[in-house]
């Protein structure tokens, strides 16, 4: 339980850092870190397969996508950067306070009503669930990947008029 709480705190801190840091590249790194910590938590919740996916795909692939986007779009001079930093700080300064206050209020007042849990599942292997019961989702994955491929073709390959 203590480990869980530490991991959760680390997750939240890393998310806040992701939001507040000034350079976009740092922000992307922060997102990858958040994903990695999330993977550890997911692993502790008895879901190793999802943890592996989260670590490799979300923490890895999404960072690549974001880094690519950022490196194409960031054009900012040193002077602008310093001006921007002050202005940003003012806007984002409230977040830690909001989070701390909300956290304290929630710890104090959040009461979750007791609820009855459903009966235990019959199938406990994720592969069996995915292939025998949720095959429609697998079909959906195939289709959405094709849609994504066409997205790449339209956005990156097709010359503009």
């Amino acid at each position: 339980m203590a480990i869980d709480l530490i991991l959760l705190s680390a997750l939240l801190l890393s998310a806040i850092w992701t939001v507040m840091t000034i350079r976009l590249v740092h922000s992307v790194v922060g997102l990858a870190l958040t994903s990695a910590i999330l993977a550890a938590i997911i692993y502790r919740l008895d879901s190793p397969l999802a943890a592996v996916f989260e670590l490799s795909v979300c923490s890895g692939l999404i960072s690549v996508i974001f880094i690519t986007t950022v490196s194409f779009t960031q054009r900012i001079s040193k002077e602008r950067f310093i001006v921007r930093r002050k202005e940003r700080l003012l806007r984002f300064l409230y977040l830690p306070f909001i989070v701390i206050i909300a956290g304290l209020l929630l710890v104090r007042y959040l009461r979750i009503p007791q609820f009855s849990l459903p009966l235990s599942a019959q199938v406990t292997d994720v592969r069996l669930v995915l292939w025998n019961m949720r095959h429609l989702d697998l079909l959906g994955q195939a289709i959405i990947i094709i849609a994504g491929v066409f997205g790449v073709v339209v956005f990156f390959k097709e010359p503009n008029k």
Binding site: S47, I62, V126, V129, I145, F155
Partner: peptide, 29 residues
């Protein structure tokens, strides 16, 4: 106690997330 179901859902969710982020990246560019 539905770890298998939750994992199956999260796997699909991650795939969708990636595709949407690729498209969003293209739009931002």
């Amino acid at each position: 106690d539905r770890v298998a179901l939750a994992q199956a859902i999260v796997l699909t969710l991650i795939v969708i997330e990636i595709v949407i982020m690729v498209v969003a990246g293209g739009v931002v560019l």
